[in-house]
């Protein structure tokens, strides 16, 4: 379990994270979303014990990451966005080095390393230096490095970035398996659809402040449903017509009429066609997480 209590972090006068409170329970996946510079990585780095909080605390299984660093770190695995390991090293010696910080008996560490490397499909490349690994292989190595101490809590910082669809699926499956094993997972990602797929909750951060925690129920019934329309010859008059059916917004090329009022798609289509607009898509839809997220953080 990870508990963040009133966490703030400032760099000189810039407040990167402000009074953040979160709790990630065992067997729970919490997504963490925010625009670039919102404070996601700063939060994760403070949670991992890499940087010191300006105020507030982070507890890993009730061990303070600053005051009880050694105990807290034993229960924590961190998968960074970019590889931060010695790329000139070969995987097994480096994993042995990392594993040396944990309490393994004679031979146990070697066995653990072999198991994890086989599980993640890189054991056959064990004699290759890490700098010759592909992006996906490096990511898998990072996952193994995080799991080497068999911690109960995981931090994934934009781990899905740079992965091909196969890689994204693999990491998603790993995260779901960790949840099944009762581990707590904190997952920051720009790929919101993936967060929506795996997270039990999604915390949204803006300018260093937590602005919303979406639960699974809220994710399922996200935002207001309405009518989504695409017109091939739009002009300014479209908004006037659609506004008579409800509150209308334009996101990209799509018009969206929020739920409420007279919203019969057939009637709306008839009205547009009569005004010589060419409608190539009209239908009822729920607002996506992306739309909701952009609305929240704008």
């Amino acid at each position: 379990m990870i508990t963040i209590s009133h966490l703030s972090k400032s760099f000189n006068k810039f407040k990167a994270v402000s009074d953040l409170n979160l709790e990630i329970k065992n067997g729970e996946i919490m997504g963490f979303a925010g625009l670039n510079g919102a404070g996601k990585s700063t939060t994760i780095r403070a949670m991992a014990g890499i940087i010191f909080p300006t105020s507030g605390t982070v507890s890993i299984d009730n061990n303070d990451i600053v005051r009880e660093k050694v105990k807290a770190s034993k229960h924590l695995g961190w998968v960074p966005e970019l590889p931060n390991f010695e790329v000139n090293a070969k995987p097994i010696p480096l994993l042995k080095y990392y594993g040396g910080f944990y309490e393994y008996g004679a031979g146990e560490l070697d066995k653990k390393i072999k198991e994890l490397m086989e599980e993640f499909g890189i054991y056959n490349y064990r004699n290759r230096k890490l700098k010759y690994y592909s992006q996906g292989m490096k990511k898998r190595f990072s996952l193994i490095a995080a799991m080497i101490g068999d911690p109960d809590n995981y931090l994934f910082d934009e781990t899905l970035n740079g992965l091909d669809p196969q890689g994204v699926k693999e990491v998603r499956d790993i995260i779901i398996n960790l949840k099944k094993d009762g581990k707590s997972v904190f997952l920051s990602s720009h790929i919101l659809s993936e967060l929506q797929n795996v997270a039990d909750k999604i915390a949204i951060i803006k300018n260093g402040q937590l602005i919303k925690i979406l639960t699974r129920e809220e994710l399922v019934n996200l935002g207001s449903s309405g009518i989504k329309i695409h017109i091939t010859n739009p002009d300014k008059g479209v908004i006037d017509i659609l506004s008579s059916f409800g509150e209308t917004s334009l996101t990209g090329d799509y018009y969206f009429i929020k739920k409420g009022g007279n919203q019969d798609p057939a009637g709306i289509n008839k009205e547009l066609v009569m005004k010589n607009y060419m409608v190539d898509y009209i239908g009822r839809e729920n607002e996506t997480l992306e739309e909701y997220f952009l609305e929240m953080v704008k």
């Binding site: 660093k69 050694v70 924590l76 960074p80 910080f101 101490g149």
Partner: peptide, 18 residues
Amino acid sequence: KDRASGIIESVIVRPITK
């Protein structure tokens, strides 16, 4: 070198203090 390149962070997250 490890500190400037960030490599040392992969060790700091282990059960050891800075």
